[in-house]
Measured scan of single mutants.
Amino acid sequence: QLNEKPLPEGWEMRFTVDGIPYFVDHNRRTTTYIDPRTGKSALDNGPQIAYVRD
């Protein structure tokens, strides 16, 4: 279940091809599976993935 609260300024939620949510921090140009609103991860110790700018 996804959090309904808005993401912090400069953050975006995207999904992997497998449908796993991850979070893009455009301020720091990093990505993470940890939801910045809750501190909880969509994966157990998930790796960071490459930042992609559209």
Rank of each mutant, 00 (worst) to 15 (best):
Q1F: 04
Q1V: 05
L2T: 09
L2E: 08
L2R: 02
L2M: 13
L2Y: 14
L2D: 09
N3L: 05
N3E: 08
N3F: 09
N3T: 08
N3S: 09
E4V: 06
K5Q: 13
K5A: 11
K5D: 12
P6L: 12
P6H: 10
P6E: 14
P6D: 14
L7S: 01
L7K: 01
L7H: 01
L7Q: 03
L7R: 01
P8W: 01
P8S: 04
P8F: 01
P8K: 03
P8M: 03
P8R: 02
P8H: 00
E9M: 06
G10Y: 04
G10H: 01
W11M: 07
W11R: 01
W11Y: 07
E12S: 05
E12M: 04
M13S: 11
M13Q: 11
M13N: 10
M13A: 12
R14M: 09
R14G: 06
R14W: 04
F15P: 03
F15C: 09
F15K: 12
F15R: 13
F15N: 09
F15H: 08
T16L: 04
V17F: 04
V17E: 13
D18P: 07
G19C: 11
G19V: 00
I20M: 10
P21S: 08
Y22K: 02
F23V: 00
F23R: 00
F23W: 09
F23K: 01
V24G: 00
V24M: 10
D25R: 00
D25Q: 01
D25L: 01
D25V: 00
H26I: 08
H26P: 14
N27H: 10
N27P: 10
N27T: 07
N27R: 08
R28M: 09
R29D: 07
R29P: 04
T30S: 09
T31R: 02
T32P: 00
T32F: 01
T32M: 01
T32V: 00
Y33F: 06
I34M: 12
I34N: 07
I34W: 06
I34T: 08
I34Y: 11
D35C: 04
D35F: 00
D35V: 00
D35P: 02
P36H: 00
P36G: 00
P36K: 00
R37A: 05
R37K: 02
R37P: 01
T38H: 10
G39W: 08
G39P: 09
G39Y: 08
G39E: 13
S41N: 08
S41L: 06
A42S: 13
A42W: 09
A42T: 06
A42Y: 14
A42V: 12
L43A: 14
L43G: 15
L43C: 13
D44A: 05
D44K: 09
N45P: 14
N45C: 08
N45T: 12
N45L: 10
G46L: 07
G46N: 08
P47Q: 15
P47T: 14
P47V: 08
P47G: 13
Q48V: 09
Q48S: 13
Q48G: 13
I49Y: 04
I49Q: 15
I49S: 14
I49P: 15
A50I: 07
A50Y: 02
V52Q: 11
R53H: 13
R53W: 06
R53K: 09
R53N: 15
D54V: 00
